[in-house]
Amino acid sequence: MAITLKFQHSALVKISPLKPNIKARAKLSKQTVFQKLNAIAIENSQVLVKLMTDLSTDFSVYVTIMNKVTNGFRIVSQNNNYGTYNPTNLPRDMIYNNQIFFSLKGDIATGSEGSVTYEVDGTGQRITFAFQCPQFSDNALSIPLNETNFDVSYYGTNQPIQWNPNDTNWGPSNNFPNKGHPLYALFVIR
């Protein structure tokens, strides 16, 4: 009597009882059979781990905004079409020669998409910073509104990064990866 085992993503394994009088058959010890079964189980668990990792991909945008002008800024609005801000209430003020950090946590179903608008203290002039790391379409960084005379640039990467304030690791301006998750974004006001 033979026992046939089938594992997903693996070949069939057929285990037959050994007949001692047939010399042509290879004799498999119990240890060898268990080693083969263990190898198949490990292979299947690795496939499962990869699948689970792929399903838990981080679709967040991690945002840094650097203020390199002599004016301060105050938040006017924050918008999140998809995702949840961390912290929930974004930094209220952006002072000169400083930077703020926040993230928009996206999930596998929708990804993340949002924007934040800051106003130059006492002028009413606004700058809007927009960002998205969606599930199915392209990543995006943009400045949809700039009522100031300041130059605003953005940079992006899919790798964790601590942005250097002296621009030594920013890469080309107004450039970011179209695909890939999560998205690390830097906006610089000059």
Results as ranks from 00 to 15, higher is better:
Glu43His: 14
Ser77Cys: 04
Tyr118Trp: 05
Leu104Thr: 02
Asn175Gly: 07
Ala26Asn: 13
Ala11Asn: 11
Pro172Asp: 10
Ile100Gln: 00
Thr53Phe: 15
Asp107Lys: 04
Ala41Gly: 12
Lys30His: 12
Gln99Ile: 01
Ile3Gln: 15
Asn38Lys: 09
Asn98Tyr: 04
Pro87Gln: 05
Ser29Lys: 05
Gln159Phe: 14
Lys30Cys: 11
Ile143Tyr: 07
Leu183Cys: 06
Thr123Ala: 15
Ser142Arg: 02
Pro91Cys: 02
Asn79Gln: 09
Ala11Gly: 15
Phe101Met: 09
Phe176His: 03
His181Lys: 13
Gln135His: 15
Leu28Arg: 09
Asp93Ser: 15
Leu12Tyr: 13
Leu28Gln: 11
Pro20Gln: 15
Asn149Arg: 05
Asp121Leu: 07
Ala39Glu: 11
Met1Ile: 05
Asn67Arg: 01
Met1Gln: 12
Asn89Leu: 14
Lys50Gly: 14
His181Arg: 12
Asp121Thr: 07
Asn38Leu: 14
Glu147Leu: 07
Leu51Phe: 15
Gly83Asp: 01
Pro87Ala: 05
Ile42Asp: 13
Asp151Leu: 11
Leu186Lys: 03
Phe102Gly: 01
Ala130His: 00
Ile100Ser: 01
Ala130Thr: 00
Phe73Leu: 02
Gln35Asn: 11
Thr84Trp: 02
Asn21Gly: 09
Ile95Asp: 02
Ser137Cys: 08
Glu119Tyr: 03
Trp163Lys: 03
Tyr82Leu: 04
Lys6Phe: 09
Asn86Leu: 15
Thr123Cys: 14
Gly111Cys: 03
Ile40Met: 10
Ile127Gly: 01
Asn38Gly: 14
Ala11His: 10
Phe176Arg: 00
Gln135Arg: 15
Glu119Leu: 02
Thr110Leu: 13
Ile22Tyr: 15
Asn80His: 08
Gly180Pro: 04
Phe59Glu: 01
Asn67Cys: 03
Thr110Val: 08
Ser10Asn: 13
Ile42Ser: 12
Thr32Phe: 12
Pro177Tyr: 03
Phe73Gly: 00
Asn166Gly: 13
Pro134Cys: 10
Asp151Arg: 11
Pro87Cys: 06
Leu145Trp: 06
Ala185Tyr: 01
Thr4Leu: 13
Asp167Gln: 11
Pro182Phe: 06
Phe34Gly: 07
Ser60Ala: 12
Ser16Met: 11
Gly124Leu: 07
Thr157Met: 07
Leu51Trp: 13
Thr32Gly: 12
Ala24His: 13
Pro17Gly: 07
Ile161Ser: 06
Thr117Tyr: 00
Arg25Val: 10
Met52Gln: 14
Lys6Trp: 12
Gly122Asn: 12
Phe187Asn: 00
Asn71His: 07
Glu113Lys: 02
Asn139Ser: 08
Thr110Lys: 13
Ser10Ala: 09
Met52Ile: 08
Ser142Met: 03
His9Tyr: 10
Thr64Phe: 02
Ser29Asp: 08
Asn146Gly: 04
Gly72Cys: 04
Phe129Thr: 00
Phe187Met: 00
Pro172His: 06
Val120Gly: 06
Gln46Thr: 06
Ala39Trp: 08
Met52Cys: 12
His9Thr: 03
Ala140Met: 08
Ser16Ile: 02
Val49Cys: 15
Leu141Lys: 01
Asn97Arg: 10
Ile65Cys: 01
Gly171Asp: 05
Asn89Gln: 11
Phe129Leu: 06
Thr4Met: 15
Phe101Val: 03
Ser103Met: 10
Asn166Cys: 08
Asp151Thr: 09
Ser77His: 02
Ser56Asn: 11
Arg92Ile: 04
Pro17Ala: 08
Thr128Leu: 04
Leu141Asn: 00
Pro182Ala: 07
Thr157Trp: 04
Asp107Thr: 04
Ile161Thr: 08
